[in-house]
Amino acid sequence: MTITRRKTLLLGAGAALALSVPFGVAQAATVDEAIATFTGGAEATEGGISISAPEIAENGNTVPISVTAEGAASVMILATGNPNAEVATFNFGPLAGSRTASTRIRLAQTQEVVAVAKMEDGSFRRANATVKVTIGGCGG
């Protein structure tokens, strides 16, 4: 393990707060651009889509998430606090048994995870979930 200055300071102060350092964060503009590319500039409204994610992730390396959007043709997932916001885009085919999909994602820090659905009627929906990513005491 490399002892970074930040870690040293934290240890020295006995600090225990999960401070986060904004490194390589996707710019808000990038997130908006990614959404705009997906929606073609159309507005995405709330409702009709849900995203489930843990309130607190024990490790940001593997965070289980699930999205459901009845009537969606595709759903894009974005991690607004990652170096690159795009996470994955699910396209539902004719034999999809539901418009639900689950995966496991990386989150660099505490942040909003956004799901945007393109509905079969051409409209767009979005939902957000905040996931707190803890900084472990024992990286090991």
Binding site: L10, A16, A18, T134, I135, G136, G137, C138
Partner: peptide, 16 residues
Amino acid sequence: NCHEDNYGNMIRADHL
């Protein structure tokens, strides 16, 4: 010190 005296406590954000 960690695993006998303090298990169940938090060490920063980690549950010992």
